[in-house]
């Protein structure tokens, strides 16, 4: 079952005086399974916000197909199952948070008591400010309120555009916890964030958008992890110089090394040789790259002449069957779906 499905999606904004409009989406294909936590990355102007608005029916595609929760975004019933937090949520300053949530609840046709609304505010840490005017809120507080509005009515799909923007580190942790709770409920999460670490922590699937196309898409491990490189840590006292000829490259002075092994057998043989030289293994994990590196690499590859063609083929791999591919570095990716350029 797919939560989001886009095929050959194009959006060209018509210019007022220019004949040729500005192309925001250039044949985007994407499939996000239900229950996944999908993070959309990409540089400014890549078409991320346009794509999100297309999912919600706020922007009408020039061509192509987009389906959300099995229906068209224009369908009122479909939108009733979506919770959305826009990038810069404009809130009525003169209202209190309770009044705002009550208004959203009415428009979502939810009958909610004030107590229920207060509970929702408590979830995002705003219950103490329930009767204050929104005009006096900080950016982070407004963001929390927007999140509370998005969570109203227990939606099946949460589309969050920069949800932690302006929120302090502790608040971010709270929001992460909240999103984890929602995911546990079975919600599909679609996240657009410039904070790559945030995306890395919350999402299990990543898509990289550039020039209106999806140039990378897949499970986080598949995108960031390497199949042949491992990170090992030996107990203090090992000799890096003795390990270097074996292929262990020191990463720091604390006993961290990286090594390459084509197969589990090669890896174990390599480790046996290291132990034979007195090194005591305390930690082993697949070597993961930063999302930033992945993004830079993907964008670099797209910009490179030889990768131009490959960029368009990124999403061709289709959705992964393993939406629960955890973020833990020790776990191997279940499958790499279209992760390679």
């Amino acid at each position: 079952m797919l939560a989001i499905e886009a095929a050959a999606l194009r959006k060209t904004y018509a210019g007022l005086f220019r004949r040729e409009g500005q192309q925001a989406l250039a044949g985007l294909d994407l499939a996000v399974p239900r229950g996944a936590a999908f993070g959309l990355l990409g540089p400014n102007g890549a078409g991320k916000t346009t794509f999100i608005k297309t999912l919600l029916g706020v922007v009408r595609p020039t061509s192509g197909v987009v389906r959300v929760l099995g229906g068209a975004p224009d369908d009122r019933a479909v939108r009733a199952r979506i919770g959305y937090l826009p990038e810069r949520l404009h809130l009525p300053h003169a209202w209190t948070p309770v009044a705002f949530l009550a208004s959203v609840a009415r428009l979502k046709r939810l009958s909610m008591t004030e107590a229920a609304l207060l509970r929702d505010l408590a979830r995002v840490g705003l219950v103490d400010s329930a009767q204050r005017r929104i005009g006096g809120f900080s950016k982070g507080m407004k963001q929390r309120l927007g999140l509370a509005a998005a969570l109203l009515g227990a939606p099946d799909l949460l589309v969050l555009d920069e949800p932690t923007d302006g929120i302090d580190p502790l608040g971010r942790a709270e929001i992460r916890r909240l999103l984890t709770e929602e995911r546990a409920r079975g919600v599909t999460l679609f996240l657009n964030s410039h904070l790559l670490s945030e995306t890395e922590r919350v999402c299990d699937r990543i898509g990289i958008l550039a020039g209106g196309r999806l140039i990378r898409e897949g499970a986080l491990e598949a995108l960031c992890g390497s199949a042949t490189r491992f990170r090992v840590r030996f107990a203090p006292g090992c000799d890096p110089a003795a390990l270097l000829p074996l292929g262990f490259v020191a990463r720091d002075a604390e006993g961290a090394f990286t090594c390459d092994a084509a197969s589990p057998e090669d890896l174990n043989a390599l480790l046996d040789r290291a132990r034979a030289r007195g090194a005591l293994l305390v930690e082993l994990a697949r070597d993961m790259r930063d999302l930033e590196d992945v993004l830079a690499e993907a964008l670099g590859a797209r910009d490179g002449p030889e990768a131009a063609a490959a960029g368009g083929g990124g999403p061709g791999g289709g959705p992964s069957d393993d939406p629960g591919g955890g973020a833990g570095p020790a776990r191997a990716p279940a499958r790499s779906a279209g992760a390679s350029p």
């Binding site: 919600l56 706020v58 810069r88 949520l89 404009h90 809130l91 959203v104 428009l107």
Partner: peptide, 13 residues
């Protein structure tokens, strides 16, 4: 206003 209309249009309205 940007930030408001998207929010409203994303609601079942």
């Amino acid at each position: 206003a940007p930030g408001r209309i998207e929010h409203l249009l994303a609601l079942p309205v």
